[in-house]
Write a protein that binds this DNA or RNA. Structure first.
Length: 432
RNA sequence: GUGAUCGUAGCUCAAUUGGUUAGAGCGUCGGACUGUGGCUCCGAAGGCUGUGGGUUCAAGUCCCAUCGGUCACCCCA
């Protein structure tokens, strides 16, 4: 093997790509039902877009970014996540002049330089939504409910939803200071990593898996107890909206998430069907981010779903719907002499909207049949000198082995009708 | 960035304590009285054993390095 895909990347072959297309189609259908509109932003941005948005002390910025200099000497970075570019685009394009809130969704590759692992790649794909311009707790709930709705719509049953409030600039600094004091008081009992965390990022103390650290943190002050009036009310309102829709959730005060821009609501959905990387979707509110990019004070909230992890979960759930039976036609050329009329027929059928193919490798007639069978064509049309002479072709139903004699000039209609009725028929059968 | 584990045909795997020309199944392509698929049978193509060194009379097998895969930590989707 001479060449291979770079570490942490992989080719998505047709079987997998079809599943992805299905998941993406389901997503855009549902997102649009919630009145979100598509947006496409560049795959790379100026490096400071991410440094500014995500925070210079985060792992993503410190060690995971694909940063390079272009020939003009600009520092650019392959996007490690989708929210920052969307917010940059919002400000860049003066979208605050549009009716608020602006509700957007996107899909595409993200890049993070990490050691690959189950459900983790250096290039990975996300489906995301952002609602910019509202601080209504009902839209926090909408974001969460949309994500849950989507997971249900693709057949996921066992999901755990965690929610939290990270507070805001008024209450969080006080809380972090309090947490720090608590940690310092228990420094003797903390592991080496955690002692560093005390100064660097006290909120991360909750993530440690060391037994002694966990014992300490169990009794640590929880952010949800130190929210100011506004944040507390907001959080309670979000919870009420979730309760109203009967959605189960677990409040997880240690749910911090690794991006600095979050304020108030954060949430995450994990699947028990996955390994260590079990978060299939996560998001939160970011009320300072638009300002950070030089726009007017504008609140926002959104989430992202990992397509690879989602695929694994849906697969494990056995929830991929069976592909619809093909009704495609294959033209078997019985004699090379009629190749040209056969190609004409090929385009006549395609022109009539019938998915059709023909042999391009010079196979024998039997070989063509085998090929048609393996590729799952429903109908094989035999075309040879006889057929051209009589104007009647043989059409074989590959599923039932029945064979029909059809007038060449009626073939398009005949196939169109049968394809139509079968597509409808299969739909009816499926429902009953 | 750290640790564990694995690299033999397109895929899944074999190959006695290091010992001749590295095998099988599936898949691909072709054939079984010449214009008809699936089942069965036959045949063919396809490997510098990830790569580079080393030990040895002899390396797929042992050692080192490197590149990949997998899993976990960190962190996240």
């Amino acid at each position: 093997m001479r060449f291979y895909a770079p570490k942490g990347t992989t080719d998505i072959l047709p079987d997998m790509a079809k599943k992805w297309r299905y998941l993406e189609r389901k997503a855009s259908d549902l997102f649009e039902k919630y009145e979100y509109e598509p947006i496409v932003t560049p795959i790379f941005e100026h490096t400071d877009v991410f440094q500014r948005a995500i925070g210079t002390s985060t792992d993503i910025v410190q060690k995971e970014m694909y940063t390079f200099e272009d020939k003009g000497g600009r520092s650019l970075t392959l996007r490690p996540e989708g929210t920052a570019p969307v917010i940059r685009a919002y400000v860049d394009n003066n979208m605050n002049q549009m009716p608020q809130p602006v509700k957007l969704y996107y899909t595409g590759p993200m890049f993070r330089y990490e050691r690959p692992q189950a459900g983790r790649y250096r290039q990975f794909f996300q489906l995301g939504v952002e609602a910019i311009g509202s601080d209504d707790p009902a839209i926090d709930a909408e974001s969460i409910l949309l994500m849950i709705d989507y997971f249900r719509s693709v057949g996921l049953k066992e999901l755990t939803l965690y929610i939290n409030s990270m507070g805001c600039e008024n209450d969080r600094p006080k809380y972090v200071e309090l947490l720090k004091q608590y940690a310092i008081a228990h420094e003797q009992e903390l592991c080496k990593d955690c002692r560093k965390r005390v100064e660097l990022n006290p909120l991360r103390l909750f993530d440690c898996k060391e037994e002694s650290c966990r014992r300490v943190m169990e009794h640590a002050p929880k952010i949800t107890d130190y929210l100011d009036e506004d944040c507390k009310n907001h959080f309670n309102a979000v919870r009420r909206y979730l309760d109203m829709q009967g959605v189960q959730y677990i409040i997880k005060p240690e749910l911090v998430r690794g991006l600095d821009y979050y304020t108030k609501t954060t949430f995450e959905v994990v699947s028990p069907l996955l390994g260590a990387q079990n978060a299939i979707g996560g998001g939160g509110r970011y009320n300072k981010l638009v300002e950070e990019f030089g726009g007017p004070p504008t609140p926002g909230i959104g989430f992202a779903i990992g397509l690879e992890r989602l695929t694994i979960a849906v697969e494990k759930e056995g929830a991929f719907v069976a592909m619809e039976e093909k009704t495609d036609a294959f033209i078997a050329v019985a004699d090379k002499a009629v190749k040209e009329p056969a190609v004409n027929l090929l385009y006549a059928l395609r022109g009539a909207g019938i998915a059709t193919d023909i042999d391009y490798t010079g196979r024998s007639l039997k070989g063509q049949l085998k090929y048609a069978n393996k590729k799952g064509f429903r109908y094989t049309i035999f075309l040879g000198p006889q057929e051209l002479e009589t104007g009647i072709v043989q059409v074989k139903d590959m599923k039932t082995s029945e064979q029909y004699a059809i007038k060449l000039n009626e073939l398009v209609d005949w196939l169109s009708n049968i394809v139509k009725s079968q597509t409808m028929g299969s739909g009816v059968t499926k429902q009953s």
